[in-house]
Simulated assay, not measured.
Amino acid sequence: MPTKELSPTELHLWNIVENNPEKIAKMSIVKLSQYAHVSTATIVRTMQKMGYGGYTSYRESLKIRNNSNSTFNVLNEADDKIRSVITKNEIEMNNTLHNLSYSTIEDSISMTKQAKIVYIFARGLSESIAEEIMVKLQLTGKYCEFHSDPNIIRTIASKIKKDALAIFITLNGETDELVAAAQKLSKNDIPVLTFTTNKAGKILAFSTLSFIGYKSKTNYFPEYEVRSRLPLQIMTRIFCDAYSVRANFYKSN
């Protein structure tokens, strides 16, 4: 494995996890952070450099090494044969679900639980989705702030402390102020969680974890930038619901 690409801190972490497989397999990302004295962002970044989707996928690989048959298949492939307005939405939904990573879901929940404060940033039509995330996380007891003003976003990004988490909601992942804010946060080793539909978006280079949905090429309002936010809504809803379950806020009947 290309350990030479790891920074000294990342190599320190990698040596710890590789030399203590049985202990690490039982640790959450937060407990490993405390055990190894590194940030959760460092853990995710290290695992990604070593070829894993995140910390959870690395733990699952440890189980497989020990003859565990645990596997995760999120959902089946979408049916893209029927072309109509309704099917366009169905295809977006199914392909977005198909793109979901179990590892990303679990690691994003762990980072959110660890954060003392969550900052949510979005612009335009994505703002309503950001507001919904804020309300849902607040209902679980998590302190959150949502900002959409470009100047405020740029200013706050330079002041966020390392015990926080930043969440970005951006359809194309190219919005200048959001990309600039994510870049600043990444430089300061602040965990960044991004929801987008552009797998080549500039913001992804500065994201610790990312949910990437499927966006249809069909636009029924070609003269305006009002493309469907359905993929973002699906991914953020799954994230919030999963967080509620893991935070023991949701109680089944």
Rank of each mutant, 00 (worst) to 15 (best):
135 V>P: 01
178 L>F: 00
118 V>G: 05
31 K>T: 13
35 Y>K: 15
217 K>L: 14
27 M>V: 07
90 E>D: 01
235 M>Q: 12
172 N>P: 03
237 R>E: 03
249 F>V: 08
239 F>R: 11
175 T>L: 02
14 W>A: 06
218 T>D: 05
214 Y>S: 06
245 V>C: 08
146 F>Y: 10
82 I>L: 12
153 I>D: 08
35 Y>S: 13
253 N>A: 12
249 F>C: 04
64 I>Q: 11
73 N>I: 11
250 Y>K: 15
102 Y>T: 08
37 H>K: 15
227 R>T: 14
80 D>Y: 09
250 Y>A: 15
144 C>K: 12
216 S>W: 01
77 E>C: 07
222 P>M: 14
137 L>P: 07
195 F>W: 01
130 A>K: 02
108 S>G: 12
63 K>R: 15
174 E>F: 07
116 K>D: 05
24 I>P: 00
47 M>N: 09
205 A>Q: 13
22 E>M: 07
154 R>G: 09
159 K>R: 12
14 W>C: 07
72 F>G: 05
14 W>V: 06
154 R>H: 12
28 S>I: 09
202 K>S: 12
26 K>C: 08
13 L>F: 04
242 A>S: 14
243 Y>M: 00
194 T>A: 05
225 E>T: 03
196 T>R: 03
175 T>A: 06
40 T>P: 08
128 S>A: 09
117 I>Y: 05
119 Y>G: 01
226 V>L: 13
189 D>S: 08
48 Q>G: 00
145 E>K: 14
230 L>A: 03
232 L>V: 04
78 A>L: 04
151 N>E: 10
166 A>N: 06
136 K>T: 08
207 S>R: 12
218 T>I: 14
90 E>R: 08
139 L>C: 07
236 T>H: 02
72 F>V: 15
162 K>R: 11
121 F>H: 03
208 T>P: 03
57 S>G: 07
167 I>F: 05
206 F>V: 04
189 D>P: 02
73 N>H: 14
41 A>Y: 00
245 V>L: 13
193 L>F: 04
68 S>R: 11
221 F>P: 05
8 P>T: 15
10 E>R: 10
112 T>I: 00
155 T>I: 15
15 N>L: 12
110 S>W: 06
48 Q>C: 06
174 E>N: 08
1 M>Y: 03
250 Y>H: 11
28 S>N: 09
214 Y>R: 13
34 Q>Y: 04
50 M>E: 00
105 I>Q: 02
65 R>Q: 14
102 Y>D: 00
158 S>C: 05
152 I>V: 14
140 T>A: 09
32 L>Y: 09
116 K>V: 11
156 I>K: 13
66 N>S: 09
220 Y>V: 12
27 M>Q: 12
216 S>G: 03
58 Y>K: 06
110 S>I: 01
142 K>V: 03
251 K>C: 07
91 I>Q: 07
53 G>H: 01
156 I>N: 05
94 N>E: 06
117 I>H: 10
99 N>P: 01
109 I>M: 06
138 Q>E: 10
125 L>V: 00
209 L>Y: 06
